[in-house]
Amino acid sequence: MTQLAIILLSIIFLSLLIGWSYNSFIHRKNALQYAYSSLETMLQKRHELLPKLAEVVQTSAEFEFRLVQEATSLLKQTNSKELPPAAMVRHENQIAKSITQITSAINRDAALRQGQSFVHLQKSIVEVEAQISASRRAYNAAVMEYNNSIEMFPTAVFASLLKLQRIDPVDLVVLEPDYTVRDS
């Protein structure tokens, strides 16, 4: 009778442990997906800045338009939402580099730099980049939680049974536009 009780209790305990571990994986996986989709949304906002930058430079006869064309073609060539995280990061970093080149070129042109539309746009860039930075940090925090759960005992045992693997954090470049920050 005692042996039966011990066996039954062990089965209940193991079932609870498996259930808790499984739910914990699902919770972290969903958190990871949510964080990744937030990151994608913020990156989409960065993409939407490109047509606005094109509008800013269109009045200038001397601007290097190839910079805008290169950036636009980068966007058209590949949909970063269809790429795996590592490739998405490489692609987005290229777009970030293109935007930096365009804003640097604008800053070299006094007329464009002082135009109201660029002043407003710079504020938008700062805002969007702050949101991308926050989303990147939230995603990487979710990655760390997920990796901890699949590497730490006892959840690591079930993670190996379910063949769950580590995920790398994203090393996404966040733009630091050519602006000044000062007290009002």
Binding site: N107, Q114, F118, D178, T180
Partner: peptide, 10 residues
């Protein structure tokens, strides 16, 4: 907390 800090164009 730098709550007076605003971003200004150069």
């Amino acid at each position: 907390l730098q709550l007076n800090t605003r971003i200004w164009s150069k």
